[in-house]
């Protein structure tokens, strides 16, 4: 049996490191705000403390403390709301928006990460209490590794293959391979698209993938992630060159076109592969009884 000080310390350290690891700064441009980092680290510290002190509270046993801890955990619900509000308000002045589906996904992930931090702190503190701090040194990293794996959802690269495609004009109608995209009336815009645009076809592996790519929210997420790296030659009030994704309704593949600042086809294809499949867009309806009946 360890002293409660050691148990709590083990839990807090493991939980806080877990939050830090999960708060990676990545190419999706979120969170890029230093104040956002501090907010999430502070909340992560509180979450880790809650998980860590739960073990002494239970073993004592101090049920009043346990009840208060349960009440405190409810506060993390606010995080989802906070993220949603922040991202939605930033969205209003973006040329290329994330879309509500992506924002909802991000907000949910941020809330869930705090519960995982509580779990890591709880398990590490529990191990330290039962078997000593030496074993907590093993349990902590294992929990951190486990939660990191748990948080990595599937990506577009796992549900679809991506291939480069030709951009062409049928009169004023812009087409990517055989998918009609939009009518471009200005000749200058047509010339620019012909000389600078990149286009790809995204072929889903199965019907589930097709349903996922059909979701407008998922398409907005793909376009947002791609433009956050490659940029797009779009300005306020000049939206002819806005990136766009349209589906071939009969053949089921998605055509995407973009006029990027950095024309690099390999990066474009790699970025699309790495776009997360959004929870709201992920389809599993065809696995249900009636879904299987419909698909056969």
């Amino acid at each position: 049996m360890q002293s409660y000080g050691t148990v709590i310390l083990a839990g807090i350290v493991a939980g806080f490191i877990n939050r830090w690891v999960l708060l990676r700064y990545d190419y999706r441009h979120y969170p890029t705000y230093p104040h956002g980092h501090i907010t999430h680290l502070a909340l992560g510290f509180i979450a880790a403390s809650l998980g860590a002190v739960a073990i002494p509270a239970i073993t004592e046993p101090d049920w009043v403390a346990v009840t208060f801890l349960a009440l405190a955990a409810q506060q993390f619900r606010e995080i989802r709301d906070m993220e949603r509000k922040t991202l939605s308000s930033l969205e209003e002045h973006k040329l290329i928006t994330r879309g509500h589906d992506y924002i909802e996904g991000i907000a949910r992930v941020f809330e869930m990460r705090n519960y995982l931090v509580i779990l890591t702190a709880l398990v590490t503190a529990g191990v330290a209490h039962l078997w000593g701090w030496q074993l907590a040194l093993v349990a902590g990293p294992l929990m951190i590794y486990g939660t990191t794996k748990l948080m990595s959802g599937s990506t577009i690269g796992e549900i679809a293959s991506i291939e480069p495609a030709e951009v062409s004009f049928d009169g004023a109608l812009l087409k990517v391979a055989d998918v009609p995209m939009m009518n471009v009336g200005l000749k200058a815009a047509r010339d620019k698209i012909m000389s600078e645009a990149l286009a790809v076809l995204i072929h889903p592996f199965d019907d589930e993938g097709r349903l996922t790519l059909q979701s407008p929210g998922q398409r907005m997420a793909i376009i947002h992630d791609v433009t956050s790296i490659l940029g797009a030659k779009v300005d306020i009030g000049e939206t002819e060159l806005l990136p766009m994704a349209r589906m071939h309704a009969d053949k089921g593949y998605l055509a995407l076109f973009i006029v990027p600042n950095e024309p690099d086809m390999d990066v474009l294809m790699e970025m699309i592969k790495r776009v997360p499949v959004l929870e709201s867009a992920r389809s599993s309806t065809l696995k249900s009884y009636w879904g299987r009946k419909a698909a056969d």
């Binding site: 009169g171 004023a172 009336g185 200005l186 815009a189 306020i236 002819e240």
Partner: peptide, 25 residues
């Protein structure tokens, strides 16, 4: 016509579409 289309598109902040019968919207 092309000049007018460009001017209106920039002033109104809209997209130009060519109906291919000599009419632009």
């Amino acid at each position: 016509q092309k000049r007018l289309v460009l001017m209106l598109a920039r002033i109104l902040g809209g997209n130009v579409h060519d109906l291919e019968n000599g009419v632009f919207i």
